[in-house]
């Protein structure tokens, strides 16, 4: 595997006041991937991004970007990193095109009208280029921030909750934009509360809670490792205990014996096969049922169960 584009080692941030927002985070980001950082409010996602982008001074640990320590090579690193912040903060009086051109200049690049036009067009902002930012809708404002972050053609892009407060259609549009960036070879690190977003977009997923990176894995591997099949089998006649015929399956009674709940498998489809086995066993034992509802667990449930697990361990 090629050298990671970003490498965090033991990254720790303790805010004045003693709050530990990052606790020895180790993370490697591969070139060209889309990495989703998932976690509840206050988990430390924004702090992690801030530490890489120069907004937060780490308390401990190291950050290497493009193979160089950013503590000493911050200029080189920052030239190649783009940031779209979580908050919609930009000079609202400025026209769109001027704001975007400014960003390009600030990062030290020569003016390039063609490039700016291309960026604005790809974000459907070209028609609005001369409008003051305050006259745009929230979704457009967020796209202006993306345009500003892309103006200096970064190799590594941070998107801090790019789809917060954005409607379903726009969110899909945002996913398409992120897809375009991937196609151009930009490495993208995004944070989100929407599990479906990570599920839809990301190559890999990291889950962070209370400053600790709990797990990092390929999205599919994580689904496989932590995924579960859940089936609810409605019984024709209520039962008071699990009959021996199906005791070897991971089942429990629920709804006062009105139905059986199966929880098992691994996210690779093994669960579904086992549910099929279970129904056959039920038939053989002469237990009648009136309906089956089978579901694969989503990243969301994985996420919640991981966090519960964390709480229990603590």
């Amino acid at each position: 595997m090629s050298e990671p584009i970003l490498e965090l080692r033991g990254l720790t941030k303790i805010y004045p006041g003693g709050l530990k927002a990052l606790d020895h985070v180790d993370l490697e980001i591969r070139k060209g991937e889309i990495f989703a950082l998932l976690g509840p409010n206050g988990a430390g996602k924004t702090t992690l991004i801030g530490a890489v982008c120069g907004l937060v001074r780490p308390t401990g640990g190291t950050i290497h970007a493009f193979g160089q320590d950013i503590a000493s090579h911050w200029r080189d690193a920052r030239r190649r990193i783009g940031l779209v912040p979580q908050e919609l903060s930009t000079d609202m009086f400025e026209p769109v095109i001027r704001a975007v051109s400014y960003s390009r200049g600030l990062f030290g690049l020569a003016p390039d009208k063609g490039r700016i036009e291309e960026i604005l067009r790809s974000l459907s902002l070209w028609e609005k280029r001369n409008d003051r930012i305050m006259t745009l809708s929230g979704g457009m404002k967020r796209r202006v921030l993306i345009a500003k972050a892309l103006a200096h053609e970064p190799d590594l892009l941070f998107l801090d909750e790019p789809t917060a407060g954005v409607d379903v259609e726009l969110r899909k549009g945002m996913w398409a934009i992120i897809g375009q960036m991937r196609a151009r070879g930009v490495t993208v690190i995004l944070t989100t509360h929407y599990i479906e977003e990570a599920e839809e977009m990301a190559d890999r997923v990291g889950i962070i809670n209370k400053g600790r990176l709990i797990t990092v894995d390929d999205k599919s591997a994580m689904m496989a490792k932590l995924g579960r099949t859940e089936a609810h089998i409605a019984l024709a006649v209520p039962m008071s205990e699990i009959p021996p015929a199906i005791a070897s399956f991971p089942v429990e009674l629920e709804n006062g014996g009105m139905s059986l709940r199966y929880r098992g498998g691994d996210g690779t489809g093994k669960g579904k096969a086992e549910v099929a086995e279970l129904t056959k066993a039920l038939t053989r034992a002469g237990i009648d049922y009136t309906g089956i509802d089978t579901r694969e667990s989503s990243l969301e449930e994985i996420f919640v169960s991981l966090l519960d697990h964390e709480e229990a361990a603590a």
Binding site: L55, W74, R79
Partner: peptide
């Protein structure tokens, strides 16, 4: 105050 300073702080300027 408005938060727009993020851009300056993340830029390659000293």
């Amino acid at each position: 105050f408005t938060g727009t300073i993020y851009e300056l702080l993340s830029a390659p300027v000293g």
